[in-house]
Each structure stands twice: as structure tokens, then as C-alpha cells.
């Protein structure tokens, strides 16, 4: 029983990471109806930026904040420079551009920072919190950070007019222009926010998996699974999906198939959800008038 609880809790910890990346994916999907294959690599690259600052002696939280800001700028610039010009052309063109970005960030990281694995510090104490023996304090801290990010995003989209404008632009860009919303910029802003959220996920996961240019590949796959399980157009669903998938991964790994087939589990989840229930568990079906 103890072991089971430990597995569930550590599943929640990884689930929190998946939830963050899934949330970033959903944000871009909502704004543009695109699935960003480069999301993971962008997060990885930003984590390297954080590492560079920490290496240069910045205090942790200063580097953390600066990384989020840089990630935001990065996201905005990418949208302006490569995503917007490709515009509404074919899905293939868009996917190719995403894959191009994935490869560029991956190789850039390898080029600048080499492929050797680097340790990445955690801002949380080394000894477990509250004397528990289930989860490390980094695990608890990571979940806490995920929840704070969620709450902030929720508040932003729910209570600010910019958040409202972003939702409106994502739903109905033509009408959004007719109320004076600069839809191009809300999209870029969406990319910036997604990149920022992704970078937080990167910094939270790096202490456990260590930093290397390929650290996000598996995580991205699970984030895809999480977003799809929860419904790719539903931020809450994505977060729930993230935790669900994280726990599922850990339990399956511990009790059923071992840890060696984790990625296959993600593959099965992705294909399964897409084929059986494309809207996911909590995917919103637009309310129709009865």
C-alpha cells in the first residue's frame, strides 16, 4: 500500500510536468488550431538558458524569472517570423515548419551546450518536506509551481480584458477584428505565453531527468497524450489529462509492463484516443441550442 501511494504521488509529480506542457500545447491549439511539435524543444532550449544564467552565478529565482521572460520573447518572435508568414497554407507546410523548428532548437542546444548531460538545480530543499517519505520536496514544489501557473493563467484568461480578447480571437478571428482586437498580436501573445509555460515545465523537470538536448522528447509525447486525453481544446482537460496520464504511466510502469515501454504506452494512448474518442474525456462539444 505504501509503495502504491508512493507510485501515485510520483505519478502526480510527473503528471504536473505533462500538464504544463500539455497546457502550452492547448494554448497554441486554441489560438491557431495547430499542434506545436517544437514545444518540447523550445522548453528544453529555454532550460539551457536558465542553466547558463545559473552557471554565471545568478540567484535561482532571478534566473527563473529571466528565463520565463526570454521564453516569452522567443515565442512571440517565432510566431512573428516563421509561423505568421506561413499563414493559412497547407497543414503539411505548417507541420514541416514545426519540425524544422524542433530540429533547429535541438541542434542549437547540442551545438552551444554539447550533448553531455548536465545536472540542473532544484530551488527546493534536498530533505523531504514535512518528514514524508513518499515525495521529494522538489516533487511537491514542482506540483505547487504547476498549480500556481495554472491559477495565474486562469485568472488572466478569466478576469482581464486581454485574456478575454485572446479567447475571442481564438474562437472567431473575423468578429474579433470587428471589435478592434489585433488578432495577429493576440496569436503572438499566445505563442509567448505557451513558450513561457513550457519553459517553466522544462525548469521543473530538468532536476529529475537532468539536462540534455533530448530530455523533452518523451515528455512531449506524454504531453500530447495528456492534451488528447483531456481534449485538445480544453485547458482544464489538458491539466487533468496530464495528472491522469502521469499517474497511469507510473502505475503501469510499476505493476504491469515495467518502465521500458513507457513511450509505447504514450503511443497507444495517443492513437487510442484519436481513434476512439477524438474529443478526449473533457473535450468541449460546443453547446448547441436545444
Amino acid at each position: 500500500m505504501d509503495a502504491f501511494i508512493a507510485q501515485v504521488l510520483s505519478g502526480l509529480v510527473t503528471g504536473g510536468i505533462y500538464a504544463s506542457v500539455a497546457l502550452a500545447l492547448v494554448m497554441i491549439y486554441q489560438a491557431t488550431h495547430l499542434v506545436n511539435f517544437a514545444q518540447g524543444e523550445l522548453a528544453m532550449f529555454c532550460t539551457y538558458l536558465a542553466w547558463t544564467m545559473l552557471d554565471a552565478g545568478f540567484p535561482y529565482w532571478a534566473a527563473f524569472a529571466a528565463t520565463i521572460a526570454l521564453a516569452f520573447v522567443c515565442g512571440v518572435v517565432i510566431e512573428r517570423v516563421v509561423i505568421r508568414p506561413i499563414g493559412e497554407s497547407s497543414v503539411l507546410a505548417v507541420v514541416v515548419v514545426f519540425i524544422g523548428l524542433l530540429v533547429i532548437f535541438n541542434s542549437l542546444a547540442g551545438w552551444i551546450f554539447t550533448y553531455t548531460v548536465k545536472p540542473f538545480p532544484s530551488p527546493f530543499p534536498a530533505e523531504p518536506l514535512f518528514g514524508n517519505h513518499y515525495v521529494s520536496s522538489h516533487g511537491i514544489g514542482a506540483i505547487g509551481v504547476t498549480l500556481v501557473v495554472l491559477a495565474l493563467l486562469y485568472a488572466f484568461f478569466r478576469f482581464t480584458s486581454l485574456g478575454l480578447a485572446m479567447r475571442a480571437a481564438a474562437q472567431n478571428p473575423v468578429s474579433a477584428r470587428l471589435v478592434g482586437i489585433r488578432v495577429g498580436w493576440t496569436r503572438a501573445l499566445g505563442w509567448g505565453l505557451a513558450a513561457a509555460v513550457g519553459s517553466i515545465a522544462g525548469m521543473m523537470v530538468a532536476p529529475t531527468v537532468y539536462l540534455d538536448p533530448n530530455m523533452m522528447a518523451g515528455i512531449l509525447l506524454y504531453a500530447f497524450a495528456a492534451a488528447l486525453v483531456g481534449g485538445i481544446d480544453n485547458p482544464w482537460g489538458a491539466v487533468a489529462g496530464g495528472f491522469l496520464v502521469g499517474v497511469l504511466e507510473n502505475l503501469l510502469g510499476a505493476y504491469v509492463i515495467g518502465t521500458e515501454l513507457k513511450l509505447t504506452v504514450a503511443l497507444v494512448l495517443i492513437v487510442g484516443v484519436l481513434v476512439i474518442r477524438p474529443s478526449g474525456l473533457f473535450g468541449r462539444v460546443t453547446v448547441k441550442r436545444v
Binding site: L164, N172, A176, V179
Partner: peptide
Amino acid sequence: FLDLTTEENLRL
């Protein structure tokens, strides 16, 4: 904006 509330539409 069909998915938003009446009041949100007005705010927009």
C-alpha cells in the same frame, strides 16, 4: 462569440 457569455460579448 458563441462560446462566451452575453456580458463577455458586450465587454468585447
